[in-house]
């Protein structure tokens, strides 16, 4: 197992490139719209789970309101595109902005709180957002939902075929993975993780704890806001029933299942939890039971998630160090 992890760690770059190449070629190999749809949805959930992992896995703040920000993104895009005729690119920007501004409003009074207090706040915020979506008829059309949202397009270019939508999502997920990767592997990323491990010690080193918490919260919700905008354009119809606390919980489960604090883990976890239920569709009503069992079993066998606690960077450094020592011994 260790050997396997070491091999993976040393070839992480190659694996990432191979994965992206495979995903680019994928729609030319499989043209079934059903399969393309699953992979597209899967990539969207990877993007969402990555945003949660940034907040929960790297900063250590559990959120139960991510679906609310997803919904804010979706509604922003739906309203702007159906009423003002804005294209998808502008809608995504607006969605990111809307989610970001609202998360700042949540963050300012609450980011001084620690641990579970924020979780409760996000839970409450999620309910408020859902109630607004249900009841502000003029803006959201309430339970009727918003129909006729234009399919993905980019500055006038229509991107509504299954294959084109797939590539839109692929670009989005790659961009968000790169963004989160570069944040986490920077000096700021070290500060963020130090807050998770011990906020007092982090503050003693001169890290501005509250500032970083607010920044990460905003970044995380902006990413999920863009995913929401994509969802609205993709599905063409949204109503409040999709953006519930149950959806937030599902998203959180994906991040935990894959391993908090691990980007490869999140990608793996979200993919498994989206694709697996599809492959056992034949089991009909037992599907949710199997889904539940998988989660329970994994949590019993590996409570940290699939790749939680596996730091590929450190494994690489250790391999490097061992090589150097061996090299030194031979001379």
């Amino acid at each position: 197992m260790n050997k396997f992890l070491e091999t993976v760690a040393c070839n992480m770059g190659k694996i990432a490139v191979a994965l992206v190449a495979a995903l680019i070629l994928f729609p030319w190999v499989f043209s079934s719209s059903y399969i393309l749809r699953i992979v597209t949805v899967c990539m969207m959930y990877v993007m969402i789970a990555l945003s949660i992992n940034l907040l929960t896995g790297f900063l250590g703040m559990m959120t139960l309101g991510q679906a609310a920000f997803w919904g804010i993104g979706a509604y922003t895009a739906a309203i702007l595109s159906t009423r003002l005729g804005l294209g998808m690119g502008l809608c995504m920007l607006a969605s990111a902005l809307a989610a970001g501004v609202l998360s700042l409003l949540v963050a300012l009074p609450t980011m001084r709180l620690k641990g579970y207090f924020l979780t409760v706040v996000t839970l409450g915020f999620g309910e408020i957002v859902r109630l607004i979506e249900m009841n502000w008829m003029d803006l959201t059309r309430g339970p009727l939902g918003i129909a006729g949202i234009p399919s993905p397009n980019f500055f006038g270019i229509d991107l509504s075929s299954n294959r084109q939508i797939y590539y839109v999502m692929l670009v989005l997920v790659i961009l968000s993975a790169l963004l989160i990767f570069s944040v986490v592997h920077s000096r700021v990323g070290l500060a963020i993780m130090s807050i998770r491990d011990d906020d007092l010690a982090a503050a003693a080193m001169g890290v501005n704890v509250v500032k970083y918490k607010i920044m990460v919260f905003i970044l995380s919700t902006m990413i999920v806001g863009v995913a929401g905008a994509f969802y609205a354009h993709y599905i063409n119809f949204i109503d409040p029933s999709g953006f519930t606390t149950a959806a937030s919980t599902d998203m959180l489960v994906m991040a935990i299942f894959g391993g908090l604090g691990s980007i490869p883990g999140t990608i793996l976890g979200a993919s498994i939890l989206i694709i697996l239920p599809e492959t056992i569709r034949a089991l009909a009503e037992y599907r949710n039971l199997v889904y539940g069992l998988i989660i329970v079993i994994l949590m019993m066998v590996k409570p940290d998630g699939i790749l939680g606690n596996v730091n590929f960077q450190y494994i690489r450094q250790r391999v490097q160090q061992r090589k150097e020592q061996k090299g030194g011994g031979a001379q």
């Binding site: 000096r187 130090s194 491990d197 007092l200 080193m205 001169g206 604090g261 606690n309 450190y314």
Partner: peptide, 23 residues
């Protein structure tokens, strides 16, 4: 240097030291 050896347990030794020189 806070009480109770509050090193960052998941960080490597080097990253812990780098955090000390954060500013």
């Amino acid at each position: 240097s806070p009480e109770g050896r509050q090193v960052f347990p998941d960080f490597s030794v080097l990253d812990n030291l780098m955090m000390g020189g954060y500013l």
